[in-house]
């Protein structure tokens, strides 16, 4: 569905804007998780076909005419693993933020100026 694709792109742009302009470290990670959600929405919406059902065989869906009745299973499978990885990476980033706070005592990105140019 195209409208959901557009929604996913809007979420990506909002998240990127947040990551670029906000100064607080937690806000940047929140922007990252918004980008994550947007990407997942786009990938799942690319596999949708109008008027079809989920790829699970039961009494209503036989294996013979499945080709004309189910949506694409591959994007679902890819997103399934991507969500779990997203959680793990978010947790790792948060732990880094906690360590940075312990080292320097600040949560503002403009206080970290070792690599500033």
């Amino acid at each position: 569905m195209t409208i959901i694709t557009i929604l996913g792109f809007l979420l990506i742009i909002i998240g990127l804007w947040g990551m670029l302009t906000r100064k607080h470290l937690f806000r940047m990670i929140l922007g990252f998780s918004i980008i994550d959600t947007g990407i997942h929405l786009i990938i799942v919406s690319l596999g949708y076909i109008k008027g079809r059902t989920a790829p699970i065989f039961d009494s209503d869906l036989s294996t013979f005419d499945a080709v004309h009745k189910i949506v694409d299973p591959i994007p679902s499978a890819l997103v399934l693993t991507a969500i779990v990885i997203g959680l793990a990476v978010t947790a790792l980033m948060l732990v880094y933020v906690v360590q940075m706070k312990r080292q320097k005592g600040s949560l503002d990105i403009s206080d970290y100026e070792e690599l500033k140019w």
Partner: peptide, 28 residues
């Protein structure tokens, strides 16, 4: 981006033979 109207080649193979080959009802 145009909405799909047919499955891709790989997905068609999975949908046709997946249940028979592997015996799982959930294709995902």
């Amino acid at each position: 981006i145009k909405p799909l109207s047919e499955l891709g080649v790989t997905s068609q193979k999975y949908a046709k033979d997946g249940a028979k080959e592997l015996g799982a009802a959930n294709l995902v």
